[in-house]
Amino acid sequence: MNTEMMHSLVDRVIKVDRGGPESRIGKLLAVAEDYITLLNADEGIIYYNTHHIKSLTYNAKDQTELDVDIPRKFSYIQAKDFQSVLGKLTLRWVKINRGGPETLEGLMNIGNPTDDFVTIVANEEIIRVSLFHIRNISYGVKVDKVNKDGKTKENNKQKDSK
């Protein structure tokens, strides 16, 4: 995909791919050399390898907002390329390839930076995944959803318990 075109969509709510198990709607936070960073209301930060993105959709007429409350000091992993993002996710709990039969979840280790695979430890299995076949990846960063009255769910939980 054209990097310049993708930069024009930063801070907008977009849909990655038209449908299927990898398709997600979220706020485009950043565009890098070979990946984009998407904030999804349900799953948090998702890093998409741009080589696997078929389409990006932005609804110019119905410009919807994402129903999340992004904290001021919200931070996420940023790197020059997708392999560097993977390197920064070493020894974190990750989810690879969001949908379909190729979904994996577990503790990730990238090993040597020259390797062309990552290692996922899930239950008693050690799984090696080719870097080329990682369409997207996420880790535990999530933000609170906003209700219709403008308050986050966390704020409402505290209010209800008093």
Score class of each variant (00 low, 15 high):
L29W: 01
T50W: 08
R128W: 00
D42C: 09
Q78D: 15
D67L: 14
I46T: 01
N156H: 12
I36M: 04
I96L: 06
Q63M: 12
L28D: 08
K142T: 12
N49P: 00
E22S: 15
D42N: 13
E105L: 00
R12S: 04
H52K: 06
I46S: 07
L29A: 03
F117H: 13
N59R: 05
A32H: 15
E125G: 00
V141E: 06
K142A: 07
D34E: 11
E124S: 15
N109R: 04
N97H: 06
V141K: 06
D81V: 09
E65D: 10
K157L: 15
R135M: 09
I25Q: 02
E65P: 02
Y47M: 07
Q63Y: 03
L89V: 02
G150K: 06
T90W: 01
K80V: 12
T3W: 10
R135I: 14
I45P: 01
V118K: 00
G100M: 02
K88Y: 08
K151T: 14
V146L: 14
S161D: 10
H133V: 11
S55K: 05
S75L: 06
V143W: 07
D81P: 06
Q63K: 14
K159I: 15
E102L: 09
K153F: 11
T50S: 08
S75D: 13
G19S: 11
V129N: 01
V10M: 15
L66D: 04
Q83E: 10
I25R: 00
I137S: 00
T152C: 10
Q83M: 03
K162G: 00
K153H: 07
